[in-house]
Simulated assay, not measured.
Amino acid sequence: MTASLFIRRLATVARVTEWWGYKFAPIMAICFASVLLTNNPIWLLSGQLLLLLLALTTAATYVSLLNDWTDRADDALAGKSNGLAHTSGGRVALLLGGCLLAGVGFGWYFWHISPVVAWLYFGTWVVFTAYSLPPVRLKGRALAGVLADAAGAHFFPQLTGVALIAASLHQHLPLLWLVGVSVWALACGMRNIIWHQLSDATNDAEAGMRTFVTRFGASTVRRVVEWAVFPVEVAALVVLLGVSGRVAPLVALLLYVGLVLIRRYRLKMTLTIVQPQPYSHVLLNEYYEVFLPLSLLLAAWWHQPADALVLLGFGVLFGPTLWRTVRLFGLAAWWLTQRMLPAR
C-alpha cells in the first residue's frame, strides 16, 4: 500500500471530513483574535498555528479511532455501520499507539513552551479516553458524557490554542477574554454534542445507550439547550466580540444574519438551534467556521500586508468549508442585484 493510499484510508476511517472545518476553523478564529489582541501580526505565529493544527489532528484521529472501536458492540445492536467493525485489533492498536506516541511528542514540545499549554493539550486526550473507554465510558453517562465531549472537542483545544499564542508571544491575555473563550467553547461544545445525540437518538435507544437525550428525552433536552445553553453561548460571543474591539467581526456578523434571512425567506430553509431537521440551517455554526475567521484575517491584512499569506493558507486548508458559503453568498448577491435593477 502506498503512503498516499494509507493516508486516504486513515482519513476515511478517522472521519476527518466530519471535524476538520467544523471544529478546527473556529479554533483558528480564536487564535487569530488572540494574536490581534496583542497587536502582533498573525504571520509571526503561522508556524505555531500549523503545529497546533497537526497536534489537534493527531488527537482527533485518536478520538475517532477509539470511539469507533469501543462503539462496535453498540453500533451492531443498533444496526449502524462502523468503520472499524471488520478491522483487526492488532491494526487498531498499532494506529492508536502511533497516535499516542505522536501526541506525547507534541506534548513534550508544548511543555518546553509552557507547561500550561501541554496540560491543556493532554486534557483533550484524557477526557476523550474517559469518554470512550470502559469501564469509565462517560459517553453512556448522560450529562457527564455531554460535558466530556464538549470539553474534549472544544474547551481544551480552544484553550490550548489561546495558551500557545500567549506563551509564544510572552504576553498575557485579558482575563475576561480567557473566561469568555472558556464559557463560549463549553457552551458551543454542549450544543453540538447534543445536536449529534438528537440525530442519533434512535440508534442510541436501540443500543441501550444512556446518553443525555435518551435519559431525559428529546423535548426536555431541546428546551435546556434553547433556553439555557444557547443564550449562554450567545452572551459569551458578545463578550468576545466586545473584548476583541474589532469592527470586522461585527460587520461579518451582520453579513451572516443577512445570509440567514435569505436562507429562511428565499430558500425556505428551517432555522434551528439544536434540533436536526431536513433542509435546515444550524444557527451561528457557519459564522464561527467562515465569517469570523475570514473577517479577522481581512482585518489583519488591512494593517499588516504580510498577513495575506495567512489568509491564503487558511483558504487552502479550509477551502471546502469556505467554498459552500462563498458560493451561496455570491448567489445571494446576484439575486439582490437582479431585484434592485430596473425592469426592462
Rank of each mutant, 00 (worst) to 15 (best):
N285L: 10
V224I: 15
R223E: 12
S219W: 02
Y287T: 04
F212G: 03
V234F: 13
A228E: 10
Y288P: 00
V225Y: 00
A235M: 06
V232A: 08
D200K: 14
L292F: 15
Y288E: 01
E286H: 13
L259G: 01
Y288W: 03
R223D: 12
L283S: 07
A205Q: 10
N285F: 09
E226Y: 04
L292Q: 14
V229P: 09
A248E: 12
W227V: 15
V234Q: 10
G217E: 01
P278W: 07
F216H: 14
T214I: 06
T270A: 06
R264D: 08
Q275H: 13
L267V: 11
R210L: 03
V257N: 08
L250D: 08
P278E: 04
T272R: 02
S219N: 08
L261V: 09
T214M: 02
Y265R: 09
V229Y: 08
T220H: 13
R266G: 15
R215P: 00
V239T: 07
Y287Q: 05
Y265M: 09
R210F: 02
Y288K: 06
L250M: 13
L261W: 06
M269K: 13
K268Y: 14
A236W: 11
R263F: 14
G242M: 11
T272D: 04
L237E: 00
G242D: 13
W227P: 05
P278N: 07
G242W: 12
A228S: 14
G258S: 10
V225W: 00
D204Y: 03
R210H: 06
L254N: 00
I262P: 02
P293G: 08
P293H: 01
R210G: 00
A236R: 03
L294H: 09
R223G: 04
R246Y: 12
F216Y: 15
V274N: 01
H281E: 11
A235E: 04
V213M: 03
L259S: 06
K268D: 15
Y279I: 09
V251D: 14
Y265V: 09
V274W: 05
L237M: 11
R246C: 11
L240H: 03
D200C: 10
R266K: 15
Y287K: 02
A235P: 03
P276I: 09
Y287S: 03
R266L: 15
V282I: 12
H281C: 11
A235N: 06
L250S: 04
M269T: 01
Y279M: 13
M209Q: 07
F230K: 08
Y288H: 04
T270K: 12
P278S: 07
Q277I: 05
V239N: 01
A248H: 03
T272W: 00
A235L: 13
V229L: 08
L292Y: 15
L253I: 08
L294R: 05
E233R: 10
L253T: 06
R246E: 15
L253N: 05
L271M: 06
V257K: 14
S219Y: 04
